[in-house]
Simulated scan of single mutants.
Amino acid sequence: MANRRHFLAGLLAATACPRPTWAEAGSPAFLSAAMTRGGRYQLCGLSAAGQITFACPLPDRGHAAAAHPEQPLAVGFARRPGRFAVVLDCVTGNEIARFDAPEGRHFYGHGAFSPDGSRLYTAENDYASARGVIGVWSLDGKRLGEFDSHGTGPHDIRLMPDGQTLVVANGGIETHPDAGRTKLNIPLMEPSLAFLTLEGALLDQQRLERSLHKNSIRHLAVGPDGTVAFAMQWQGDLSEDPPLIGVTRRGGTPRLFTVPPEQATRMQGYAGSVALLADAREVAITSPRGGLAQVFDLGSGALTRTIGMMDVCGVAASGTGFLLTSGTGEVRGETQVTHDLHWDNHLVPI
């Protein structure tokens, strides 16, 4: 009887104190890692207008983040080849758990939650075996398991709209912490997109044509209809000016979009981030090296407009257009604001 009373008391307490929501963290629309002018690292929430809604400290430089689908919790990931990922309470700013990469592994800076937020999937490098791994974690930092990414160098990872499938960008590049950020297998690269079940079964794998095997597939954006856009980084001769953006669907064939030669030269083979504006049928990529963002028609693949912006890298769909962030602190969309921060690579939708 006592146990029953305690159970009922706990149930009533839980009902009386509902879990906090993203509204209590200022209703952010996006997450982005940043560095202050004083050299401290943060994970910030941004509104659709580019205003900062919260800032949580990070132990070192961050890369991207994953937002919990219901609670105001975010996971901030270390920049490759970092070994930490921290779970942050975006209301209090406290670190509530930490994922430490297992021995012989490091994170690649990206992860994705399961639909109910109970599991986090992380892109990892098993560097002793040059094998890509997807780690599976609970929110309290416990490792629940892992499975093969079916490629080398898995970088970005996204949950598909069906809530049952992951898409993984296997960049194809072998690295090892002893060699820093040196790329060890450029002649033998095999980048791919892998579609996996939440248990790790391979459903579909797509590769570029052999002449483009040095085009590392790095970053992803997923539309509500299952369209996948991907941004690439060329590891070959820069005079070749290869396409750096493509779109596909599960079971389909990648379509690659090209830009005028003068813009391709400016980009130096490097696309930083990608975003899809599903309603407007547009897709955008950024090039911090070229200081520009490019917007394409999703159907025809035609370049429709170019936006010049110094050190631009983060991009996300926002309203009827795209929101952009840069290393200069600028946030540009329908309005423009500059913060006293250096924004890092990615702008992650919540």
Rank of each mutant, 00 (worst) to 15 (best):
R5M: 06
H6Y: 01
G10M: 03
L12V: 02
L12P: 00
A13F: 03
A14L: 09
P18C: 00
S27R: 12
L31I: 11
A33K: 03
Q42F: 07
L43S: 02
C44K: 01
C44D: 10
A48N: 02
G50D: 09
C56W: 05
C56D: 07
L58K: 01
A64I: 03
A65C: 10
E70V: 13
Q71Y: 09
A74M: 14
F77D: 12
F77E: 06
R80E: 07
G82C: 05
R83L: 10
A85P: 06
D89K: 01
T92D: 07
I96S: 03
A101F: 05
P102L: 08
R105M: 12
H106S: 00
F107P: 05
H110R: 00
G111H: 02
A112T: 12
D116Q: 14
G117R: 02
S118Y: 00
L120N: 00
N125F: 05
Y127H: 12
A128S: 05
A130I: 01
G135V: 04
G135M: 04
V136L: 14
L139P: 03
K142F: 03
R143C: 15
R143L: 11
F147R: 03
H150W: 09
I157H: 00
L159N: 11
L159P: 04
D162Y: 08
G163S: 06
L166D: 14
V167F: 06
G171Y: 06
H176V: 10
R181W: 11
K183L: 14
L184S: 06
L184E: 05
E190Q: 15
L193S: 08
L198Y: 09
L203Q: 11
R207I: 13
L208R: 12
S211M: 07
S211N: 11
S211Y: 03
K214Q: 15
N215S: 15
S216F: 04
S216L: 07
I217T: 09
R218L: 10
R218S: 12
A221C: 03
V228D: 08
D237G: 02
P242C: 05
P242V: 15
P243D: 06
P243G: 04
P243M: 01
G252F: 08
P254N: 08
R255P: 01
F257R: 00
T258C: 12
T258Q: 13
P260C: 13
P261V: 10
P261Y: 00
Y270P: 10
A275V: 04
A278V: 06
A278P: 04
D279V: 08
D279A: 14
S287V: 03
R289A: 04
G291S: 08
G299L: 00
S300E: 15
R305H: 09
D311I: 00
G314K: 06
S318W: 06
F322R: 08
L324G: 02
T338E: 12
H346A: 10
L347W: 04
I350N: 14
I350W: 00
